[in-house]
Each structure stands twice: as structure tokens, then as C-alpha cells.
């Protein structure tokens, strides 16, 4: 599903590379936590998967494709098979919940009939059944994140990338979101989630990958947030 072969990434005008020689493989159906302090390279790692950046060295394969060899105009096609969720939700505040989900389907050219069928389905799935006509501003943070997850999942992606999806939410709401992500994972979607939330990682007991100063320092199946001291 995702394979990194000794991948390094340095940004211009920065001495220290953001990622150094990271090698790792994530297979279909896995749930992976990506942990590490700020500046450890988590975001760069995710941006490489989304091909917002290209690796300086090494190879990144996502969904069986070598991203270095993927031409620019094929990138959108690749991204349609990924879902993305962010800490700040990134909803369109002037569109209703349903329209937000529909927008994502519209812009990749889905037919109207398909959209009409998919939107309520996926809103039901994330627990927002019947709230399609509400505006995002009227919803709580947790509900807004559910909308974002619904949007990311609407196209049934093989892979869901989540960048601190619970970063803005209180612990109780976060648990709800994690349950949802877990459910999505059980449908066969691979989930890669960057997080700072120790409680969640410790509770879920999934694979944990830790980055530190751009290096991969830990890769544990059924791991916890930090080393036990």
C-alpha cells in the first residue's frame, strides 16, 4: 500500500533534512499511528504520500505507484484513491454539510445521481444522518470533523491519511472520532494517522511509527505512544 525505500527529503534553505533515510512498508488494511514531536518530520512524511512534495532521495510507492515517476497530470487520479482529514477540518463554511460532501464528488466528475445516493449514505456512516442541511458553523468540532471524514471517505478510498484529526477536540469527542476511524479501517481502508494524543495511541494498541529529527526511531506493532520508562 505504502512503501518508503530509504527516503530523504530536504527543503531548500534548510540545513537539516526533514526526513533522513526512512524505510518502511505499510500493507493493505493496516492502522498506523505516526508519532513524534513537532518538527520530527511527520507532516513531511504525509506530504510525500500525498505527493504534495517529492522525495529528494529514495523512492516512495503509494498504491503500487512510484510517485517519482508519476507525471503531474496523473496526480489527481492518484489522489482520488486517497482520503485526507486534517486538524482544522477544512470545510467550506458557506456550504451545507451535504454540499461539502457533494462538492468533493462534484469536482471529480461524479454524476448527479451518484452524488444524491452517496451523500446521505456516507453521512449516515459517520453518524450525521439527517444533518445534511445544517451549516458547518452550527455543528460542534467533533461533528465538523465527522463531516470532513465523510468527505474523505465518500469516494471509498483505499487509504485514509489523517493529520492530527483529534488535535482540536476534547478527549471524549476524540474517542468518538477514533471509533469512527477504526470502523472505517475495518471496512478494509488503510489508515495512517499522525497524532500527538498519547491517550488515544495507548488505548488503540495499533502499529506505532515514531519519527525523531527526521529519522525513523521506532516501528512497533501494537505499540504505545512513548517508551515505557
Amino acid at each position: 500500500m505504502i512503501r518508503f525505500d530509504s527516503v530523504s527529503k530536504s527543503y531548500p534553505k534548510q540545513n537539516r533534512p526533514a526526513l533522513r533515510e526512512v524505510s518502511l512498508e505499510i500493507v493493505r488494511g493496516e492502522f498506523v499511528f505516526l508519532v513524534g514531536s513537532s518538527g520530527s518530520g511527520k507532516s513531511t512524511f504525509l506530504r510525500l504520500i500525498l505527493r504534495e512534495e517529492r522525495a529528494s532521495q529514495g523512492r516512495v510507492h503509494v498504491l503500487g505507484k512510484d510517485l517519482a515517476r508519476l507525471s503531474n497530470w496523473k496526480v489527481p487520479q492518484m489522489r482520488r484513491q486517497l482520503g485526507t482529514v486534517f486538524q482544522d477540518f477544512r470545510l467550506l463554511t458557506n456550504k451545507t454539510v451535504g454540499e461539502n460532501v457533494a462538492f468533493a464528488l462534484e469536482v471529480i466528475g461524479k454524476s448527479r445521481g451518484q452524488i444524491r445516493k452517496t451523500v446521505p449514505e456516507v453521512l449516515d456512516l459517520v453518524g450525521l444522518g439527517g444533518k445534511g442541511d445544517r451549516m458547518p458553523g452550527e455543528l460542534s468540532g467533533g461533528e465538523q470533523q465527522r463531516v470532513a471524514i465523510a468527505r474523505a471517505f465518500a469516494n471509498r478510498p483505499m487509504l485514509l491519511i489523517a493529520d492530527e484529526p483529534t488535535g482540536n477536540l476534547d478527549p471524549q469527542t476524540s474517542v468518538g472520532i477514533m471509533k469512527l476511524l477504526d470502523r472505517i479501517n475495518r471496512t478494509g481502508t488503510t489508515v495512517v494517522m499522525a497524532t500527538h494524543d498519547q491517550q488515544i495511541v495507548d488505548q488503540m494498541r495499533k502499529r506505532v511509527v515514531e519519527l525523531e529529527m527526521g529519522r525513523l526511531v521506532r516501528d512497533q506493532t501494537r505499540g504505545v505512544y512513548g517508551y515505557q520508562h
Binding site: P76, Q77, M78, R79, Q81, V107, I108, A152
Partner: peptide
């Protein structure tokens, strides 16, 4: 958002 969900740059 369009970029993220994979809208083509033409679109």
C-alpha cells in the same frame, strides 16, 4: 479542497 480530493488541474 479540490486538489486534495483529486480534482484535475484543468477542472
Amino acid at each position: 479542497i479540490m486538489r486534495l480530493v483529486g480534482a484535475s488541474s484543468f477542472y
